[in-house]
Design a protein around this nucleic acid. Structure first.
Lengths: 230, 230
DNA sequence: ACCTGAACACCGTTCAAGT
DNA sequence: ACCTGAACACCGTTCAAGT
């Protein structure tokens, strides 16, 4: 259907799949998901909206490719010679930081996991977990859970951050949410009230890292438990 | 803006916020996200599309309310008298199962976390974690990480499942992905190749539970480390 | 106060027609 | 083979007009 021989470049115009995706990324970075329109893209590339369909199957494919490109680049930069735990931290943070900087990547990943970049992430995490001593039989579920945490948590914080986008700054938005939660009966929701201040002052990145630490610690504990036997 | 006194019901027609949300849920369950249209909703309620705007601010609010309603109902059913670990398992599974049964809830949660039901989830998880011995100062990041895992992982598996929706059955879709991953060089991606079979045969729900176990184990380990001191 | 439905602005996608 | 741009079908949302 959309198989395109990668023969250098498009002919008539400078149009090519790569050019289109790059332009799409620019638009997404500048104006968010709602700004990416075939009309906007066409006018930025000085072409007709129909021309884009010659190189890209549809909007889903375009978004997929854009997110994948950005994620792949970020993952490629992660150092490969760190100790396991620090390696995992770097991988996770690189994903988190990309998604925080470009929230549209988070939404796209949430809508369509299993893009090619996932293989990169998967490979990278597997290697570190194996170094950590996780037995081969338990490797898949551990890695799978970790990547789901990384992508899911990053996507959510990005979505949350995106909501306080033009209305006001991030902290005010969070304050409003906390305030609404505080309306609930303290008898029924003691912990919501107890933790309100921690919630107000929390740092998304730090919380994200705690979750990573928990998973890694859990994996370590599990692998020890299983290594002791034989 | 959208403040509506809950005065029993709407007047002229049987229209009310609750009726509208219920109808929206029916449509979403039957036809997925793309089926929910103001026109479809209006015709199902035998009214004009404009009438809906009297009770609901816009489509985002409608989706929010629908997802929140479904999630709240699921969370309300979870037993509250279990031991901490089993309690956490039940909460997590109830969310996972809802999102698997109604994938549109997952997409909506990914797009707009912090809905009222989140307070429910947050409270519930906090109590179990506290029972588990997590010190108060560490409670927020732990609970936050856990809820992010639960929602993120559930949303992702739902999105993945949704993709093999009419094209073919779930396993075939996954096979196709694995096949594409296998095209990569085994020297550069040894773990992708090593774990391909595990990936092909994995069960989403079981993997989800492993992730939960890891986080809980990590939290337990962490709280012990800090409890030993004083 | 609540409902109606035509109208508006804006999408993604297609396709006959060009080069 | 690749590009053009008008046309199609379909959205969310608004609003004058009704009751």
């Amino acid at each position: 259907m959309s198989a395109k021989p990668d023969s250098a470049n498009g002919r008539k115009n400078g149009l090519s799949r790569a050019t289109i995706i790059a332009a799409a990324i620019d638009i997404l970075d500048a104006g968010g998901q709602s700004a990416l329109t075939f009309r906007a893209l066409a006018s930025r590339l000085s072409t007709g909206s129909g021309a884009i369909y010659w190189h890209v199957a549809d909007k889903d494919a375009l978004l997929s490719a854009a997110a994948d490109r950005v994620l792949s680049e970020a993952l490629a930069k992660v150092a490969r010679d760190l100790d396991p735990v620090e390696g995992l931290r770097q991988i996770a943070l690189s994903v988190f930081d990309v998604i925080e900087a470009r929230p549209w990547v988070g939404s796209e990943i949430a809508r369509e996991p299993w893009q090619p970049a996932m293989a990169e992430l998967f490979e990278h995490c597997s290697a570190r977990f194996a170094d950590l001593g996780v037995p081969q039989a338990a490797l898949f579920p551990c890695v799978s859970a970790l990547t789901q945490y990384i992508l899911g948590a990053a996507a959510q914080t990005a979505a949350a951050a995106q909501h306080g986008f033009a209305t006001s700054d991030q902290s005010t938005v969070l304050d409003a949410i906390v305030d609404r939660w505080m309306d609930r009966n303290p008898v029924d929701y003691p912990y919501v009230h107890l933790l309100a201040d921690q919630m107000r002052q929390h740092d998304d990145r730090a919380v994200f890292l705690v979750g990573l630490e928990l998973i890694v610690a859990g994996a370590k504990a599990m692998s020890q438990r299983q290594d002791v036997r034989p």
